[in-house]
Amino acid sequence: MPQAASQSIDTIQALFLALIQGITEFLPISSSAHLALVPLLTSWPDQGLAFDCVVHLGSLTAVVFYFREDLARMASGFAVTVKQRSISADRDGYLAWMIGFATIPVGLFGLTFKDMIETDFRSLTVIGTTSIIFGLLLWLADTEDKNTKTETSWGFRDVMIVGFAQAIALIPGTSRSGITMTAALMMGYGREAAARFSFLLSIPVIVLAGSVKIKDWIEQPDQAAGVVELLVGYGVSAISAYLCIHYFIKYLQRIGMGPFVIYRVMLGAVLLWMVY
């Protein structure tokens, strides 16, 4: 059970942590690896569960707003599939079903192994190692020559593979966006198709993770962050996450995954160096 923070955070800490959350939530570089560095490089107090909740809400706001037109079509299409009792009755409705199916593994794994993930796996050794290993896997997947599948190619088998890959991302340092894009690229999907599906898939996952944090906060509320810090956290997280999604998709075809792989390997090496 998380412990209530004994100190209050300030605006600078709120801004910095929200920026980390907003950027690393969607880039394939692992948010947990970056957050692990914060207590090592600063003397900041724990930000508390309330702050964690609002920055996740900021990230959720960003991805929902960015994909608002897609989500509206998916909601309308989902209603069509329900009415006609066929998930293939509407293309956008079909995608909504695929997102739902792909979310099942992370929900089951998260509930089953929550305590183990929050304790045994949160070491710098694990985070540094997974950052490097899954970074190299991303590089390998991005060098494939058969990345020609588009968003219309998603089938049940493919989305479940991505879904189980996402469940592995519960291990800190793996990167949810990184491993889901890796799985999609390895199955032959293009970079943009892999990224868009990963971002859409993040919506129910952020909702699930946020719900767990809210539950924990209700059970043990904290006063680590004041109203100003919470507002800063929400705003900075939402804006940085939106810009991150926009420019990542815009420049992905041009830059590829190489820069993120190099960054991950260097970050993992730093974390392991700090341990040994």
Rank of each mutant, 00 (worst) to 15 (best):
A4H: 02
A4R: 11
A5P: 07
S6V: 08
S6K: 13
Q7R: 14
S8I: 00
I9P: 02
I12A: 07
A14V: 02
L17E: 03
L19C: 14
T24R: 01
E25H: 06
P28F: 02
P28L: 03
P28W: 10
I29Y: 04
S30Q: 07
L40R: 13
L49K: 03
D52Y: 01
C53Y: 01
L60W: 02
L60N: 09
A62H: 00
F67N: 13
R68A: 08
E69V: 07
L71M: 15
A72N: 14
A72Q: 15
R73S: 06
A75G: 04
F78K: 02
A79E: 12
A79Y: 09
A79Q: 05
V80C: 05
Q84E: 14
Q84P: 06
R85M: 14
R85D: 14
S86K: 14
A89K: 06
D90S: 13
A96Y: 01
A96V: 03
F101N: 00
F101Y: 14
I104M: 08
I104T: 07
L108I: 15
G110R: 00
G110F: 00
T112K: 06
M116T: 13
S123I: 12
G128S: 08
G128K: 03
T129R: 09
F134Y: 12
L136R: 05
L136D: 09
L137T: 04
L140S: 11
E151I: 12
G155Y: 02
F156W: 11
D158S: 13
D158P: 04
V159C: 07
G163T: 02
F164Q: 09
A167G: 11
I168G: 01
P172H: 04
P172E: 11
G173S: 08
G178M: 06
M181I: 14
L185K: 11
G188I: 12
A194E: 01
A195M: 05
S198P: 10
L201V: 07
S202V: 04
P204V: 03
V205D: 04
K215D: 11
D216H: 15
Q220H: 15
D222A: 09
G226S: 06
G226M: 11
V227L: 15
L230W: 04
L230F: 03
L231R: 10
V232L: 06
Y234T: 12
Y234A: 10
I239L: 15
S240H: 03
A241N: 08
Y242I: 11
I245R: 04
Y247I: 09
F248Y: 06
I249N: 01
Y251E: 13
I262Y: 10
V265M: 06
A269Q: 05
V270A: 12
